[in-house]
Amino acid sequence: MAAKTTTQSTLPASYRLELQTPLVLLMTTKHMGNLLVALHCMQEIVKASAGQSLVVIDERYRDIIDATSGIGKVLYYPRQQLKTTGLRAKAKLLYDFYRQLRQHQARLLLDFDGQGQASTITQLSGINQRIGPIDALRSKGLYSLQLADIERPPHRFNDYALYLTTFLGHNPRPQYPRLDTSPANDDNLAAILHEYQFEHCMPLVCIHVGATKAYKQWPIEHYAEIADWLAEQGQQVVFIGAGAADTQRVSRVQALCQRPHVNVCEQLSLRLLIALFQQCRFFLGNDSGPMHLAAAAGARVYAIFGPTHEDRWGPLGNKATVIRNSQACESSCSKKLCPVNHRCMNTLDPAQVKAVLQQHLL
């Protein structure tokens, strides 16, 4: 039997009362941007539950949770460890994870993610009352109820905010959680930048040239041109990123640059990256997790968008500016298949980007 769909007006009163008993908030997404966009809504549910919540998060984002107040008790899903250990060690990791999850003795599970691993965790949680999103990949027989509200604005934040509307009657404005770092992080960051001969007298600009999908990536030759131009404007460019794909793209960009720039790709923890974003003059990059992290850290953000839509996936807050090609793609264009090779991204002229950035440099 398919799960029922519900909005605030049809949610049984018994579900609303469940916030006063032990519950689980599940957000084991692999995508850092989705986590950051969801965190404020999760904070509000934790607050309303008066300490009865257990929040389940991917272990890779421990630094983000440590920098976020009001999350309470957290259980980390050991995704990375499971990839690097043997069969016996994997079995123990999973046993320990599900043992801690079940020890919370929750009566209600709220699945904020609804994708991939979250579906498996929901199924094995031992929790009978389970509420999930309407767009969950695997929903048949999984949820007691699925939340649906076709009238909400399109940004992903509003999908998560539906939990607040349903349980608390709140309609929050789109926002990230506040991210705080300790003075020790600033000191550690200063030491690392010193190793890379960073010029402390010059304002720094962070650039992230990567993205999870190729169709989100502005061409590397354009980033090289922008980096050199920023240096001519008296800015110290710092390339950031993580993973093999980002490392390769940064190396290719640097090979095209005529000026030296600082490259800390793969050198900073998320905690130090937050500290860096809080010190930078602005961030420039594609639609990506680091874009959302920079915006959440309070940095001025310039985000380059192509096939993806900022109304759905754009950075939050009044310090974010989306840069988009004035030349649209064909109407038949999709993210995975485009008859004109994602013209909206690949033909975005560096001159247009410079004109936007110049306003900030004045």
Results as ranks from 00 to 15, higher is better:
residue 206 C to H: 05
residue 206 C to A: 15
residue 207 I to A: 02
residue 208 H to Y: 11
residue 209 V to I: 08
residue 210 G to L: 09
residue 210 G to D: 13
residue 211 A to N: 09
residue 211 A to W: 02
residue 213 K to Q: 15
residue 213 K to R: 15
residue 213 K to G: 08
residue 213 K to I: 09
residue 213 K to L: 14
residue 214 A to Q: 15
residue 214 A to V: 10
residue 215 Y to D: 09
residue 215 Y to V: 13
residue 216 K to Y: 05
residue 216 K to N: 15
residue 216 K to E: 13
residue 217 Q to H: 08
residue 217 Q to E: 15
residue 218 W to H: 08
residue 218 W to D: 13
residue 219 P to Y: 04
residue 219 P to Q: 09
residue 219 P to N: 06
residue 220 I to M: 09
residue 220 I to W: 00
residue 221 E to I: 09
residue 221 E to A: 14
residue 221 E to Q: 14
residue 222 H to L: 02
residue 222 H to F: 10
residue 222 H to G: 05
residue 223 Y to H: 13
residue 223 Y to E: 08
residue 223 Y to S: 06
residue 224 A to C: 07
residue 224 A to P: 02
residue 224 A to I: 04
residue 225 E to Q: 15
residue 226 I to P: 05
residue 226 I to Q: 04
residue 227 A to M: 01
residue 227 A to R: 04
residue 228 D to N: 04
residue 229 W to I: 00
residue 229 W to D: 01
residue 230 L to N: 03
residue 230 L to D: 06
residue 230 L to R: 01
residue 230 L to F: 04
residue 230 L to E: 07
residue 230 L to Q: 04
residue 231 A to N: 08
residue 231 A to Y: 04
residue 231 A to V: 08
residue 231 A to P: 00
residue 232 E to W: 01
residue 233 Q to C: 07
residue 233 Q to P: 00
residue 233 Q to L: 00
residue 233 Q to N: 05
residue 233 Q to G: 02
residue 234 G to D: 05
residue 234 G to V: 03
residue 234 G to T: 07
residue 235 Q to S: 06
residue 235 Q to P: 03
residue 236 Q to M: 12
residue 236 Q to W: 05
residue 236 Q to G: 11
residue 237 V to C: 04
residue 237 V to M: 03
residue 237 V to F: 03
residue 238 V to L: 09
residue 238 V to Q: 06
residue 238 V to F: 04
residue 239 F to I: 05
residue 239 F to L: 12
residue 239 F to P: 05
residue 240 I to F: 11
residue 240 I to V: 15
residue 241 G to I: 07
residue 242 A to Y: 08
residue 242 A to Q: 13
residue 242 A to E: 14
residue 243 G to Y: 09
residue 243 G to W: 08
residue 243 G to A: 12
residue 243 G to P: 12
residue 244 A to F: 10
residue 245 A to Q: 14
residue 246 D to V: 11
residue 247 T to P: 01
residue 248 Q to C: 07
residue 248 Q to E: 13
residue 249 R to M: 14
residue 249 R to P: 05
residue 251 S to L: 07
residue 252 R to I: 11
residue 253 V to E: 01
residue 253 V to A: 14
residue 254 Q to L: 13
residue 254 Q to C: 11
residue 254 Q to D: 02
residue 254 Q to Y: 01
residue 254 Q to E: 11
residue 255 A to R: 04
residue 255 A to M: 06
residue 255 A to Q: 11
residue 255 A to W: 00
residue 256 L to N: 08
residue 256 L to T: 03
residue 256 L to V: 02
residue 257 C to M: 11
residue 257 C to Y: 00
residue 257 C to G: 01
residue 258 Q to K: 12
residue 258 Q to A: 13
residue 259 R to N: 07
residue 259 R to H: 10
residue 259 R to W: 01
residue 260 P to I: 01
residue 260 P to S: 11
residue 260 P to V: 03
residue 261 H to A: 09
